[in-house]
Design a binder for these strands. Sequence first.
DNA 1: ACTTATCGGAGCGTTCCGCTCCGTTCCCAT
DNA 2: ATGGGAACGGAGCGGAACGCTCCGATAAGT
Lengths: 205, 205
Amino acid sequence: MSTRGRQAEARRNDLRLLRAAHEVFTTQGFDAPVSAIAKAAGVGMGSLYRRYRTKEELFQRLCTIAMERGVEAAEAGLAEPDPWDGLCLYVRTCVGYRAGALAPVAGTITTTEEMWRTARRATELAERLVTRAREAGALRSDVTALDISLLMEQFSRPAPGGEHPHAKERLLTIALDGLRAPGATELPGEPPGMDWYEGRWGSAP
Amino acid sequence: MSTRGRQAEARRNDLRLLRAAHEVFTTQGFDAPVSAIAKAAGVGMGSLYRRYRTKEELFQRLCTIAMERGVEAAEAGLAEPDPWDGLCLYVRTCVGYRAGALAPVAGTITTTEEMWRTARRATELAERLVTRAREAGALRSDVTALDISLLMEQFSRPAPGGEHPHAKERLLTIALDGLRAPGATELPGEPPGMDWYEGRWGSAP
DNA sequence: ACTTATCGGAGCGTTCCGCTCCGTTCCCAT
DNA sequence: ATGGGAACGGAGCGGAACGCTCCGATAAGT
C-alpha cells in the first residue's frame, strides 16, 4: 500500500470524503449540499460521484460506519472493569462524534440490509452495557437502554448558533449524574419501545 | 370586541398565524417555507404578508413573544414558595413549548431593540431563580444560569424522526435529577460567559 | 510518447422558495 | 338595497440553490 500514485490518492480522497461528510451531515443535516462536502474534503464533485453514485449512497455508507464505531465504543465500555465507568465511556464516546445526529435522518432514506445488521449488533451490545450497570446498582433502575440512546441522540444534535468549547460536556456531565442510582424522581410515562424506535427507520426487513 | 365581521377575522387570523408559525418554526427550523405556515394557519399568503411584511419580521415578532412567555414562566417559578420546585417549573414550562428552539436561529437574522430588551429581562429573572435555588442548597453549586439556558435549548430541539409521547419528559427528568445538589461529578471546563452567549445574536446595541 | 485512469469544477435541468398581484368575498355606512 | 372598500385566498413570477453530469486537464504506468 503505497502513499504515492493515483490509486493512493483515490484512497486518501475516499477517507477525506467520509470524514468531511460526517462533519457536514452531523452539523448541518442531510439537507446540506453535496458540493459543501466536496469542498470540505478538498475534492472535486467528479471524484465524489465516481465513488458514491448518489448522495443517498454516501449517506448510507456513513451511517453504517457510524454504527460500527458505536459497536466499538460499546465493546470498549464492556471491556472496562467498572460497569458505571464503562457506560459513561460509551455514552461520552458516542456523543463525542455526534453519532446520534445521523440516526433521526436515517428515517428519510431507505435503510440498507447492512445498516439493519449493524444496528442490531449495536443495540444488543448497548443493552448488555446498560443491564450490567443496572444490576451492579450503579444505574437507576427505571431507565431503559432506549432512553439512553435517545439521550445520546438529543446531545448529538448540534447547536446552529455555534458551539461553546465546554458547554456540551458540562451538560452531559449533569445528565450522567442524573442517571446514577437512585433516581431522585420517578421517570414519567411509558418508556419508548423497540418497535417505535425502529419504526422511524421504515419497516424492518 | 366583536367575534364577527372582517376585523374580527383579521384578529383571529393573526393569532392563528402566530401559533402556526411557532409550531412550524420550532419543529422545522427557520428554513421552513412561509407557505407551510400559511397552510398550517388555514390562511392565505396574502393575509400573511399584509400582517408581516417579510418572513424575518414574523420571526422577530415570534421571538419576542417566546421570550415574553419565558419571562412569565420565570415569574411563575419565583412565585413558587419552594426554590427547587420553582426552578423545575420554569425549566419544564420553557421546554414544554420549545422556547429554546428559536434562540439559536435568532442569530441568523437581525435582532431588534425589543428583542434585546425582553431577552435582558428574561435572563435577569432566570438568574434570580437559579441563584435562589443554589443558595437554598437545592441546586448543585457549580452550575450557572447559562448552563441551564443551554440545557433548555438542547431539550427544545425537535427530533426530526418523530417524537415519542413521553421520551422527552423522561430525559428531562433525568437531567433535572442531575442538577440537584450535591453534584456527583464536578463539571468540566470553564462555564460559558454571557458575552459568548449574546455574541451568537450579533453585536449588542 | 502514448494510453488510460483519475482529477476538479463549470454547467444543465429541475425544484423550491419568498414574495407579489389580482379576482373574489363580505361587512357596513348610507 | 347597494356601492365602496377592507380583507381574503392562492396562482404565478423571478431567482436562488441543489443533485448530478460532462469534459478538458493532469499525471501514473508502460
